[in-house]
Simulated scan of single mutants.
Amino acid sequence: MQKFNLLLLLSLSFTLQGCAQETTPNAEQQIIEATSAAPEDTRDGAAVYGYTSKGNLTLLREGTNSLICLADDPNREGFQSVCYHQDLEPFMIRGRELRAEGKNNLEIFDTREAEAKAGTLKMPGQPTTMHLLEGKSGQYDPESKSVTGANYRYVVYIPWATAESTGLPIQPVVPGGPWIMDPGTHRAHIMISTPPQQ
Rank of each mutant, 00 (worst) to 15 (best):
M1R: 14
Q2E: 11
K3A: 15
L6T: 11
L6K: 10
L8K: 12
L8D: 10
L10T: 10
S11A: 15
S11G: 15
L12N: 07
S13C: 14
F14R: 09
T15V: 14
T15M: 13
L16D: 07
G18Q: 14
C19E: 09
A20K: 09
T23D: 07
N26D: 15
Q30H: 07
E33F: 07
A34D: 11
T35Y: 07
S36N: 10
A38E: 08
A38Y: 08
A38K: 03
P39E: 15
P39N: 13
D41N: 13
T42L: 12
D44S: 14
D44N: 12
D44K: 12
A46L: 00
A47V: 00
V48S: 02
V48P: 00
V48F: 03
Y49G: 00
S53R: 06
S53I: 09
K54G: 07
K54I: 03
G55M: 05
G55T: 03
G55F: 04
N56T: 06
L60M: 05
E62F: 05
E62A: 09
L67F: 04
I68Q: 06
I68P: 00
C69A: 08
D73M: 05
R76K: 11
E77I: 12
G78Q: 06
S81D: 04
C83A: 03
D87I: 05
L88H: 08
E89S: 06
E89P: 00
F91T: 07
F91Y: 14
I93A: 13
G95A: 04
R96P: 01
R99A: 15
A100H: 09
A100T: 12
E101I: 01
N105P: 00
N105M: 10
N105H: 05
N105K: 08
L106K: 10
E107Y: 01
I108T: 06
I108A: 03
F109G: 03
D110G: 01
R112V: 05
A114F: 04
E115A: 09
T120A: 05
L121T: 09
G125S: 11
Q126C: 02
Q126I: 10
Q126M: 13
T128C: 09
T129M: 11
L132H: 09
L133W: 11
K136N: 14
D141R: 02
D141I: 00
D141W: 02
D141S: 02
P142G: 07
S144I: 05
K145F: 01
S146H: 06
V147L: 02
V147F: 06
T148L: 09
T148D: 03
T148I: 12
T148G: 01
G149K: 01
Y152N: 03
Y152I: 02
Y152C: 01
Y154N: 05
Y157H: 08
Y157P: 02
W160Y: 03
A161S: 04
T162K: 00
T162P: 00
E164W: 01
E164Y: 00
E164G: 01
T166H: 02
T166V: 02
G167T: 01
L168I: 01
I170R: 06
I170W: 00
Q171K: 13
Q171M: 11
P172D: 06
V174E: 15
P175S: 04
P178K: 08
W179P: 03
M181Q: 14
D182S: 15
D182K: 13
P183L: 15
G184R: 11
R187Q: 15
R187D: 15
A188G: 14
H189I: 05
I190R: 07
I190N: 05
I192M: 11
P195Q: 07
P195I: 08
